[in-house]
Amino acid sequence: MTIAQIITLIVAVVLIGFILWWFFGKHQEAVGTASVDQGVQEANIVVKGGYSPSTVVLKQGVPAKVNFDMNDSTACLSHVVFEQLGVDKDLTKQKITTIDIPTDKKGTYNFACGMDMFHGKVVVK
């Protein structure tokens, strides 16, 4: 085995370790809150390689809107699907897509991209 091969082997092991830690380790995720203006609360989610923040917390009883700001031009995140609400919106048609969230009850509305690869949730409490 040459030096180059040994180095490659070590680098590969380190890289695999890094991938495992980075993708499967526990990492803190940011939680967004909504701003309330004239009795309507609004939260913004930036769509770029995922949803940031991926969790949004809304107050119960205040009419709510969640704005998806599309910054990704690949097909992966082109749709957002709220399973419980029956919403499937194409985000590529306009820069910002607004979705009304019912806040009469407490609960969690999960959302995902059209291929169910990226996930996020809106929590009403």
Binding site: W22, F23, E29, G50
Partner: peptide, 8 residues
């Protein structure tokens, strides 16, 4: 890259 920063 953006996804990577989200650990995704």
């Amino acid at each position: 890259w953006a996804a990577f920063k989200h650990h995704q």
